[in-house]
Design a protein around this nucleic acid. Structure first.
Lengths: 331, 331
DNA sequence: CTGAAAGCGCTAACAT
DNA sequence: ATGTTAGCGCTTTCAG
């Protein structure tokens, strides 16, 4: 059994308060006593147990991340930012995998009551007003990533603007027939419709310039590479196929690339392909894409929860990250 | 403030013990009383606080994962398996990102003493005897992934055999000049040398068949795509370049693929490329590779820690996962 | 079947 | 400067 604060106190011939003090505010204790206690601490290998400390302080030094987990690789990128900021701040990261609406619901309702977390970061989940307000009232500091809500702090990007940026970029390269491939990952009522927004942005600028946007007839209610491939096949089979395709995510772009290869289309000469996200593999495969600074969004979210943790009354803050196209080889 | 067990007790006119009983072992409580208490629980929205319960039970329902985090995407795949098994078992997952030897050291020494975790899964870290024995003695149930040690449970694959499998596969396809591209991600003394082992396996079977293995002159002390690309360039510039390259990981294979493209080599006609890991993107890009069932390894590790948690005295178990080649388009 | 009371290992007033 | 003591919110003997 590891040593407790009582063992140290006995060993050093002082009270537990003194031991606690030399651990937490050494300056307030007599140097001689402090030294003696420190020796005892080392001799016994004493380390305050995190749970006992957490309980007494009512501070757990853990923040949670709730997300429709590995279904979408952008998650990992954001998590990387979260993890490193959190660890810099001396907090642990606990991950809640929520792939189904039921799981999400359960977590969202129990997490605040369990009181094990100092803060919670919610990724890529649309929250309705009731839930947002309830979370806000629960006392558990929250920050959103990708989704936003007036009553909760959040980081996001302007997805519609992302679509515009993509459209302008492709038009500037001379394309007059632009295809779109998209789909959102569905998690019931929590589903975020970023793909839709990106399409809207694309349409806006295309329409203004008199350029055609071709959207697959297939329902875009999924976000896998396979779906994207099918969508691309459909587009490419048309009488006047697009010369460029904007995919709503890098993962989907992979499907488009594959479709192009199977149809023996050269990229970007025969078909330009532009993704969205700038995932790690995008650089690897030379995919041109719209970067949304995923890692930064994670860091920002940590700042936001921290702010909420520091002052529960503080007003929600919203930050919008910039978007920019990363030109590589596919468009 | 959320309701406590005292509030419920008062509300129902019973003692806290009774409330605790209806929550934890309802069958031992008079149905009438139980019903009354249950009504109070619902009325007050009582949920036992996880930290208080954890403290009283000395069971936190959290297991940690320590790994040189996002440096290697195989991590994510394994984490997926861990996360889902853990959540099935009603445990939370806390992630410790340890990119530097210092961090790793610090975590390995503090985690057992902090006593916040019920178990720990350590990924891709070589532990020396002293550390392994110390961990074993610490009382914190541990399971290793990718590394193994006699005194700790672990899941791994036979990396040397992986190299053999790769070599045989490539030779069966007729290759007589096989290149190798490799490198291990370095984390000081904790560095695992799987790339080396895979190379050894390759050399074994190649030698036995009188086939040349070409290894880059560059020191392979890194594991990035860029390094792999440089290594591949070097190999391809030789007077008798390899007709196939075995990359020690899928990520490295990406670099080889890139090098091939820049040299205008058709894959697999001019150059066959075989990876290792079977990461998610391998399927996307049609990369032939050696699968090592990453997700399964995560699930297995959870089983191992759970076993260790159930009985601290239990002997360490070691499981070795099978390897198989996944034939796709690059080899 | 139910209640009283002793922990769990700390921190943080409050005393001295 | 240091010690005493009351929590923190549960679980779990031990009595009754």
């Amino acid at each position: 059994m590891p040593a407790t604060i009582y063992d140290v106190a006995t060993h050093a011939g002082v009270s537990i308060s003194t031991v606690s003090r030399v651990v937490n505010s050494p300056q307030g204790v007599n140097p001689a006593t402090r030294f003696r206690v420190q020796r005892s601490i080392e001799a016994l290998g004493f380390v305050p147990r995190a749970d006992a400390t957490a309980r007494a302080r009512r501070l757990h030094r853990q923040v949670g991340v709730l997300a429709p987990f590995f279904t979408y690789s952008a998650f990992v990128q954001r998590l990387r930012g979260i993890a490193s900021s959190l660890s810099d701040a001396g907090y642990e990261l606990v991950v809640y995998n929520a792939d189904t609406p039921e799981h999400i619901h359960a977590y969202l309702h129990s997490l605040p009551l369990l009181r094990r977390l100092d803060g919670l970061i919610i990724i890529s989940l649309r929250l309705d007003d009731m839930l947002a307000v309830r979370l806000r009232a629960s006392g558990l500091p929250v920050a959103l990533i990708e989704a936003t809500h007036p009553s909760l702090s959040g980081v996001d990007v302007d997805n519609r603007e992302g679509g515009r940026v993509a459209g302008k970029y492709l038009m500037a390269a001379g394309h007059r027939q632009i295809g779109f491939v998209g789909g959102d990952y569905a998690v019931g009522d929590y589903t975020l419709r970023t793909s839709q927004l990106r399409l809207q942005g694309l349409c806006e600028v295309a329409e203004a310039a008199g350029v055609q946007v071709q959207v697959p007839a297939l329902p875009a209610n999924s976000a896998t590479r396979e779906d994207a491939q099918q969508q691309a096949f459909e587009l490419l089979a048309r009488s006047q196929p697009p010369t460029a395709i904007f995919a709503a995510s890098d993962t989907l772009a992979l499907g488009v690339l594959r479709a192009a290869r199977e149809r023996n289309l050269r990229v970007p000469q025969d078909l330009a392909v532009l993704g969205f996200d700038d995932l790690e593999f995008a650089e690897y495969i030379g995919l041109s894409t719209i970067s949304q600074s995923l890692e930064v969004s994670g860091r920002q979210a940590v700042e936001l929860v921290m702010a909420a943790m520091a002052d529960e009354q503080t007003l929600p803050r919203h930050v919008q990250l910039p978007l920019h196209v990363v030109r590589r080889e596919t468009a």
